[in-house]
Each structure stands twice: as structure tokens, then as C-alpha cells.
Amino acid sequence: MAERVLELQHVTMQFGGVVAVDNLSMHIDQGEIVALIGPNGAGKTTAFNCITGVYVPTAGQVRYQGQVIVSAQPQGKMKALYAGSYKDFPSQRVTSTPDAITKLGVARTFQNIRLFKTQTAFENVLIATHLHRSSNLFTAALRLNHREEKQLREHALKMLEAVGLMDEKDELATSLPYGKQRRLEIARALATNPKLLLLDEPAAGMNPQETDALGQFIQEVRERFDLTIFLIEHHMDLVMDISERIYVIDFGRQIATGLPQEIQDNPDVVTAYLGVEEE
């Protein structure tokens, strides 16, 4: 059996009275490309944020490589407010900060691009190599770590080369065109040496050719860096093309899951999502 990389069990995220993610359970195995789709506001980004530690879910569990990284039950006033559909909460409480989860091997990109805006493309990637350093404050400040520093720089260059941004390496990240900024975000995520890569709408704002190229590129990096990929995407061609399995959510709830072909033919999905998209 393939190794289970990520597993969500009954995850619910409620903001005040709004249940953004409701009882979401899913799993991803080693080496898979899995897509999460759903209309705008369905709760996809929120699900990513629960996995990466940006939000502590109201209830539910997240396991990464078998290890519980998040486990939560309603706290404080949420006890009374809780409006999720699943009420059998885990008893233990575990929370992890985003940096700790990244350290374990989960990296991500953002739907609304979040590059370090005063830094060049190269510096953006270099910052993300931070996890591989062993130098402390003093050895770093006094330049006793120049060998390590050189390795970090080489690693960053390799990532830029992998996404084809070598020519733009000294340009300010925010001055790059949209498509390249998205690639740079991927390079930056790759620089943390992840095992699981979460991509939040990587093709947003790209034209059909760019989207096509991105699909190929995602499959390439999966091979090259031995990755598992979890992706949120609206471009259906891309999703159907590269993903091996798909989860569909609407109003925070899972409405379908299966192979791309099955999803395409699922009447619920067509009404909830594809129908709206193609109107």
C-alpha cells in the first residue's frame, strides 16, 4: 500500500457563525497529484490554511505521514456556537505553527501571491532555504558559515533554474509578470525541500498557453523532487489533465470525490460547480 502522506479527519473550520469548512475528510498518498475544487467561497483556501497551521480548525484532526499535527475540538465560546455537522470530537489537542509544519516537509503557495516585495527573485528563494541552515546567530553574523552560505545560495539558484527564472534572478520579485511571480512562489516553496506541495490556484491569471505549460511543469517537478502535490485550481482542463484524484467541495462540504472522469460525469458536481462555471 502506498504511504499515506496527508490525512484529514472530520475537519471543521468555523468563523463566528460561518462554517467555512464542514466535516472534511480526505487523504493523499505518496506521489499523487490530488486536486481540490469547488466554487468560489467553498472553503478550499481555508482547508489549506487548516493543514498548514495558519488556522487552528474548530474541530477535527490532520495527520502528516501518520503523525498528528493538528487535533482540535471547539474551545471557549465556540462550544455553544458550534454549527458543524460532525460532533464526535477528538479528545487530544495538538496545534502546530506554520513554520513547524513547513519544517516537517509541507510547503505551499498562496492564491493571492505573497512574495517578499522588497527582495529580488533570488533573495525570495534564498530566504526559503533558511530551514537548511545550521549556523547560529554568531557564526552567521561573523561569516564563519561561508561554506554553508555558499550551499544555500547554490540551492536557491538550483530552484530558480528548475522553474526557469534564471534570467530574472536579480529582478525585484514584484516587478515580474504575473505568471513568473507564480512560478517564483513555487520555486520558493521548493527551496524548503518539501515532500508535500500545496498549490493554491497556481494558474490564476495565466493564459491558456501558460496554463498548459504549468501543467507540464507541475508533473516535472513532482518527478524531479519526488513530491506529492495537492492543488486547488479553477482551470478544469488543467485539473482534469494532471490530477489523479479529485475532491469537490461546496459550502465547506465534500460533495464528490473520485477519478477525473467520474467527477466530470457527476451530476451533483455539474450543478454545483461546472454548471456555474460554464454558463
Binding site: 498548514t52 495558519v54 513554520d99 512574495l115 533573495e123 553574523a141 516553496a189
Partner: peptide
């Protein structure tokens, strides 16, 4: 100045530019 141009200084600047992204890159805020 040496500190600011070291890997730690880069992390400081990352936090300044975008805390959420910095944390997602494994920087302990």
C-alpha cells in the same frame, strides 16, 4: 550590518515584508 546581511537578517526582512509568507517558509516568527 553583518547580521542584517546574514541568513538571519534575511529572515528579519522576510518577516517585515510578509509575516504569513515568512512563517510558511519555516521562519519561526
Amino acid at each position: 550590518a553583518l547580521l542584517i546581511h546574514s541568513t538571519y537578517g534575511r529572515s528579519f526582512k522576510a518577516i517585515r515584508d510578509d509575516e504569513v509568507a515568512a512563517e510558511a517558509m519555516g521562519i519561526n516568527l
